[in-house]
């Protein structure tokens, strides 16, 4: 389908252009907030959309990286770039441990186990001392990126965040479109068959899980630098649920879906938070129900479906 790839290329161009112009149009903090969650959702989508594994505990990786980054940048005076690397490494390590445990079970158990393990991390963060317990870590200095770029300036920080996001996006894109990604899709479609073809399915699943955890960590680490604080919210089950919703709403297993979903959900949250207060949870729940019952392909999935239908009618 040459046309679809052209559309996709145009999509990448438009995305990049929008990303570059955006801070002159919208509030940079909001954009960075959305970009962090967009990367988080893309990383989550690698697991659910392309490997068919539903993790209900991805906040554990987001939170781990946020806490580690916040801690090393604030108390050890590590520059933010290294801090983000440290956070991402920590999340990757936690991802490896959780991944090795959780790939022992499949399907619905996978979701329950990830949720439980994430809750374990949550209680660990609540009780250990470096996270500041209920108070969290406040006043993380943004510092300078590579000793040159002063990140206290929101707009400069925005471009660093955008570049990091694009890096993560490219990694995911390469993973999906590599032979490795093809095997992941084969596992999603028919796991026993992938086994019978001689693939070591567990190794593939574990690697996908670790990549997903690491990139979720990257998102969490950036989040800590952007907001200069980390609280328990970053690792609780609501956050795990949010990233599921973003991916589902945007479109499972689509390249752009999670980005669209993340922007939609973050916009809703920031717009509605002061208007309806605690009812935000209700709206998010209703969106879950709506997506599952009426809208399973998500915004991007439905749009692609519509496009193909229109295309299919044309005499080609």
């Amino acid at each position: 389908m040459p046309n679809l790839s052209k559309v996709r290329l145009a999509g990448y161009g438009a995305l990049l252009a929008a990303g570059l112009v955006a801070p002159f149009v919208a509030y940079p903090i909001f954009l960075m907030h959305a970009l962090c969650f967009a990367l988080f959702a893309c990383a989550f989508n690698l697991l659910l959309g392309y490997t068919g594994l539903l993790s209900f505990g991805h906040a554990a990786f987001f939170g781990t990286a946020a806490y580690v980054t916040g801690h090393v940048v604030k108390t050890m005076a590590v520059p933010p770039g290294l801090g983000v690397l440290a956070g991402t490494a920590a999340a990757t390590a936690v991802g490896f441990v959780f991944g090795s445990l959780v790939i022992r079970r499949q399907g619905i158990y996978f979701a329950m186990i990830t949720l439980a393990l994430a809750q374990l991390m949550y209680f660990f963060f609540l009780q250990t001392s470096f996270t500041g317990g209920e108070d969290g870590i406040q006043g993380i200095p943004r510092g300078h990126f590579l000793w040159m770029v002063n990140l206290a300036d929101d707009r400069k920080l925005y471009y660093v965040v955008l570049a990091t996001f694009l890096f993560g996006f490219v990694v995911i894109h390469r993973t999906i479109h590599s032979p490795f990604g093809q095997v992941l899709k084969a596992i999603r479609e028919n796991e026993p068959r992938a086994v019978s073809l001689g693939y070591d399915v567990n190794k593939y699943k574990l690697l996908a899980f670790v990549i997903s955890a690491g990139l979720s960590g990257l998102a969490g680490a950036m989040y800590a630098i952007v907001f200069t604080f980390v609280t328990l919210t970053s690792s609780d089950w609501h956050t795990s649920g949010e990233v599921v919703l973003m991916t589902l709403l945007g479109g499972l297993g689509t390249v752009f879906g999670p980005i669209v979903g993340a922007f939609a959900v973050v916009t809703l949250q920031t717009q509605l938070a002061d208007k309806v207060g605690s009812l935000v949870t209700v709206i998010m729940g209703a969106m879950f129900i709506g997506c599952v019952l009426l809208f399973r392909r998500g915004i991007v999935g439905e749009a692609v479906g519509l496009y193909n239908r229109v295309l299919g009618r044309r005499p080609y």
């Binding site: 949870t281 729940g285 997506c291 599952v292």
Partner: peptide, 30 residues
């Protein structure tokens, strides 16, 4: 609601009931 999902992957059942949990919890909390 649940009745419409029996032919689908059972992950959708989990997601739907998660939504129901959020709605009820949110309403009562409000």
């Amino acid at each position: 609601m649940l009745r419409r999902l029996y032919k689908l992957d059972n992950l959708y059942g989990l997601l739907l009931t998660f939504g129901i949990a959020l709605v009820t919890e949110g309403l009562f909390r409000h």
